[in-house]
């Protein structure tokens, strides 16, 4: 089913969750959604509801307090889905690595598909990351459809 994969690629609805970021990356995500970059060109919509989202954007290193929420949100997203870790903190914990209260990277909690490093990650990088994630989504979709 080619149409289904195409539709999936053309309509990635994103859920943005901040698991303990300094808000630097969050502002960059919002910047990517502004008219200047116009993410809606690619069908990207910031949907805010995990039950309807396809792509999860995560910022921040994830800590002991919010890992439960992160896990819940991830579970509430229907397949096929991809998860993008945005910023150094989300990728590896960065300067919070080995801090007792953080997990040091969101991949300690849920599986990550794409890592977008940078402190903070630039909008161009984020859009690039989403494009990469879409390739993974296409792979997943093809695999699912068979």
């Amino acid at each position: 089913m080619k149409i289904m994969t195409k539709a999936r690629l053309k309509s990635p609805w994103v859920l943005h969750y901040d698991c303990g970021s300094c808000n630097g990356c969050d502002i960059e995500i919002l910047a990517a959604l502004t008219p200047k970059f116009d993410a809606e060109r690619f069908g990207i919509v910031n949907i805010g509801d995990p039950k309807q989202a396809d792509v999860m954007l995560l910022t921040g290193p994830s800590n002991k307090r919010n890992q439960r929420v992160l896990k819940n949100l991830y579970d509430q997203m229907p397949e096929p889905k991809v998860v993008i870790a945005i910023g150094e903190c989300a990728c590896s914990g960065a300067i919070f690595h080995n801090c007792p209260n953080t997990n040091g990277g969101v991949d300690k909690v849920i599986p990550i598909d794409v890592y977008v490093p940078g402190c903070a990650a630039r909008p161009e990088q984020i859009v690039d990351g989403v494009v990469l994630a879409l390739q993974k989504l296409a792979e997943k979709s093809e695999k699912e459809v068979g």
Binding site: K6, A7, S11
Partner: peptide, 11 residues
């Protein structure tokens, strides 16, 4: 239409 087709194919 992309949106609806995609939604139809979700889990």
């Amino acid at each position: 239409f992309y949106d609806v087709i995609k939604l139809w194919g979700k889990q």
